[in-house]
């Protein structure tokens, strides 16, 4: 499997080019910030009628990641839905699709700032998850160790091109947003630069997962 292999707090992990994280020892796949139902929420707020295909696209890529890894546990690291109403408004076809993906797997929804409430879809709903040496939560906490989080949609640039990226240092990993309709925050933004240690690495997503020193 192509990806960038690294160790965080003793756990051997793999950053996939798609922006998903795989933990082979636990057969666990982690994705963050799916923002399912974004187009619906934007339309509901009368902002604009965005093409309503982002849920389909995001789930297609999630399905591919599951097929690739054969993961037995899936952790969606928060902001899985653009808001709670967007989760409720998911069309039956997409609900069924999610149920199919969940079949035979442990599935955990971590709560995010966009989707704090439990969803009426299968799977567990947790504020955070501790597993072995790692803690999986939506928003990074200062001073945490062995923490895997999302929320910031980090992007990093190489040769002038910025794209979604994992940010990694000795204490924590921040995942890029996996959802189709998501923008990004550059790694040189002060909140990210302050959070990440001086030796931090950004792992670019795209064709290959490519590590570079984190631009700051």
């Amino acid at each position: 499997m192509d990806g960038y292999a690294f160790t965080l707090a003793g756990a051997e992990l793999l950053a996939l080019p798609s922006g998903a994280l795989y933990w082979p020892a636990q057969a666990l796949l982690c994705v963050s910030d799916l923002h399912l139902g974004k187009a619906e929420r934007v339309a509901r707020r009368a902002l604009s009628p965005l093409p309503p295909y982002e849920t389909q696209d995001t789930l297609t890529r999630l399905e591919e990641a599951l097929a690739l890894t054969g993961a037995e546990t899936v952790v969606c690291l928060g902001d899985s839905f653009d808001d709670d109403a967007a989760a409720r408004a998911l069309p039956p076809k997409d609900r069924l699709w999610i149920a199919t993906l969940q079949a035979g797997r442990r599935w955990i929804w971590i709560e995010g700032n966009h989707d704090p409430g439990p969803v009426d879809l299968g799977g567990e709903h947790l504020a955070e998850l501790s597993l072995g040496p790692l803690t999986l939560r939506h928003i990074a906490e200062s001073g945490a160790q062995g923490e895997v989080s999302g929320h910031y949609h980090p992007k990093a640039g190489l040769r002038g091109r910025w794209r979604p990226a994992f940010l990694l240092d000795a204490a924590r990993l921040i995942l890029p947003a996996f959802g189709t309709y998501t923008g990004g925050l550059r790694s040189d933004a002060s909140v990210l630069a302050d959070l990440m240690g001086p030796q931090a690495v950004a792992i670019l997503t795209g064709e290959v997962a490519r590590p570079i020193p984190m631009p700051r």
Binding site: E40, A43, R44, A46, P49, P51, P52, Y53, A89
Partner: peptide
Amino acid sequence: GGYTLRSYDQWQR
């Protein structure tokens, strides 16, 4: 929005 997929007609403009 004029999309082939009509998924949120209740929110049309």
